[in-house]
Amino acid sequence: MAASPSAGPGRGVLDAGFQILEAVSAAPEGCGLSQLARATGLAKATAYRLAEQLVALGAVQRVEQRYFVGERMAELGRHWQAAPTLSRAVQRPSRILAAVTNSTVAVCILDAGEVRLVSGLKGAEFFLGTIADPELIYRTALAQVLFAGRADNTVPPPTYSATEWQRVYSGIVDAGMVSVDHHKLIAGICCAAAAIRQPGTCDAAAIGCVSLSQQFPPNLPGLVAHAAREIEKNLR
C-alpha cells in the first residue's frame, strides 16, 4: 500500500508535490495517473489530488488524461541562477574587462562536470552555444581552468588522456591558474581564462575573455587574472 504524503518524516505534502513535478518532468510524452502513482509511490487518489492542485496553480498542465510540466514552472525556471552570489560579485569586474579589451567575457562554473555560464557579456552565450562539437568545450581555456580548479583536479576531463591533462594542468598551475589559447581551438579566436577562488568552497569557477583579434593581445592574460582577483575581493 502506498504511503500517504504525511506518512513519516520528510514525506509531507510539499515533498509529495515535488515528486509529482519530478515524475511529470521525466515524461516528455506526458504522465498518466497510473504512471504518476507508480513513479511517486503515492496512492492514485493522492496523486490525482496533488496533480490537480498543481494544475490549478499552473505548475502542471493536463492534456486529456496526461500531465505535463506547466507554463508557470517554465516561467520560474527562466529566473533560476546557477550561482547567485558569484553572479553579483562578477558584474563590475566583468564589465570593466569587456570594455578594456572590447571582447566577449564569460564567467562559468562546473555543474556536475558540465560547463555552465553564470554571467556573460558581448555574446558569451552565443560563443559557447555555437561550438559545434560538444566535446570541444572541454578544450577551451575556460574549461581547462575550471577542471584545474576542482578538488579532484588530477582526474582528466573528458577527451584528455592522463598524460595530456597532467601537462595542461601543470602549465595552468605554473601560470598562476591561468590558461591561454593562442588560436589553437578555433581559427581567428584567442582566449585567456583565470580561476576564481570562492571562500569556504572548493567549487570551481573561472572568468574568460574571448578576443577576435588576429594578434593575441599580450596583456590579455594579466587583465583576466586581475579581473578574477577583483571578483574574489567582492566575494570576501
Rank of each mutant, 00 (worst) to 15 (best):
N219C: 02
A7L: 12
S87R: 11
T46D: 15
D174C: 06
A37N: 05
V224R: 05
D203F: 06
E52N: 15
I109M: 09
A98P: 08
E125Y: 03
Y169D: 13
A98D: 10
E64P: 03
M177S: 08
F147N: 10
A151S: 13
P221F: 00
P199S: 05
S170K: 13
V145C: 14
V210E: 02
M1N: 12
A162W: 04
A206K: 02
V69E: 12
L142F: 01
E64H: 12
V118R: 11
A74E: 10
G32W: 08
A74G: 15
S34E: 09
F18D: 11
A225I: 02
A23M: 03
S94K: 10
G70T: 04
A82N: 10
S4Y: 13
C202Y: 06
A143S: 15
V13R: 15
T130A: 07
L110R: 12
A2I: 05
T85A: 15
Q53D: 11
Q198K: 12
L220K: 06
S179K: 05
L36Y: 09
G77C: 09
G58E: 07
F127I: 05
T130E: 04
V145N: 10
Q91N: 03
Q144F: 03
A59L: 15
N102T: 01
Q215T: 08
L235W: 00
T159Q: 09
S25P: 04
K184D: 13
F127N: 00
L235K: 09
G222W: 04
G113D: 04
A124M: 01
Q81H: 10
P93A: 00
F147S: 01
D133E: 15
L97H: 05
E75M: 09
C108T: 07
A141K: 10
R38C: 02
R150V: 02
R66E: 04
W165I: 05
A7Y: 13
P218I: 01
L54D: 12
F68L: 11
L76I: 07
Q91K: 12
I231C: 09
F126D: 11
R150P: 06
G200V: 02
A74F: 12
Q19K: 14
G123Q: 07
A37M: 03
A83V: 00
C209H: 02
A205D: 11
M177A: 11
V24L: 06
L110P: 13
V155E: 12
E22A: 14
G123I: 00
L212C: 10
S213L: 11
C202R: 14
A141I: 00
L36A: 05
A59G: 06
E125W: 05
